[in-house]
């Protein structure tokens, strides 16, 4: 997994609540057996005017000029500003794969759906919860200032805005450690093989029908 330490990134605002993972990556793209290449189809039904299918040349498709990610001022964005319950619905990890492949590294929202939140950390993507009022303030600031960037420091757990405001954010110690060091969860867990085996033996003895 790629590390996440520090980012000074352009912010793109997606001003709607309950953005579900079907919207982030529509089902037809889930037929792929790979975990890369989903970026061009992130938000496909909002981003393009024509219907997308796997294998299409996306550069030849009709772009929806009204969709925020398509606006010239937001090209190259690495921070997505979103509303409550971002990433709800399907557990598809293709959603964080698509966002990461698109170029995003940080998502800021008042709340996230649990499975999506969890999936982000497995892919070097940092989801940050801020209070709804703080997110509101950021939405206004982004819209008012072309080229609006935020500095995200995972070690310090801070987001610094151009006006000097510093937002503190929470992140679980273990997730932070893994993300800062780009650690592979499986490798970490396999350091505890002995404990897993001991648990398994005890569990099997207690419930031999399992």
């Amino acid at each position: 997994m790629q590390k996440f330490t520090l980012l000074d990134g352009l912010v793109v605002p997606l001003d709607r609540a309950n953005v579900d993972t079907d919207a982030i990556i529509p089902k037809q793209f889930l037929k792929s057996i790979k975990r890369s290449g989903f970026g061009p189809n992130a938000f496909d039904e909002w981003r393009y005017l024509d219907h997308g299918e796997p294998g299409m040349d996306n550069s030849k498709r009709q772009i929806n000029p009204d969709f925020v990610l398509n606006q010239p001022r937001y090209q190259g964005a690495q921070v997505l500003l979103a509303r409550e319950n971002f990433g709800c619905g399907s557990s598809r990890e293709h959603a964080p794969w698509a966002l990461e492949d698109y170029g995003l590294r940080v998502i800021i929202a008042p709340s996230f759906a649990d499975i999506f939140f969890n999936n982000c950390f497995k892919n070097g993507l940092l989801p940050i919860r801020l209070a709804a009022e703080q997110v509101d303030t950021l939405f206004k600031a982004v819209e008012a200032n072309v080229g609006y960037k935020l500095k995200v420091d995972l070690e310090q757990q801070t987001i610094s805005a151009p006006d000097g405001t510093v937002y503190k954010f929470e992140v679980e110690a273990f997730r932070k450690h893994c993300l800062l060091n780009g650690l592979d969860d499986i490798g970490l867990t396999l350091q505890h093989v002995g404990e897993i085996k001991a648990y398994e033996a005890k569990h099997q003895a207690a419930q031999p029908w399992l």
């Binding site: 975990r35 598809r92 990890e93 964080p96 499975i115 999936n119 497995k122 969860d185 867990t189 396999l190």
Partner: peptide, 23 residues
């Protein structure tokens, strides 16, 4: 019983365990 992402599918396949916090 709960849904998991593909990284966790691989994690369960390899370790029979998941890393998580209690809800």
């Amino acid at each position: 019983a709960f849904g998991i992402g593909t990284s966790e599918v691989e994690h369960v396949m390899a370790t029979q365990c998941l890393l998580m916090k209690k809800s």
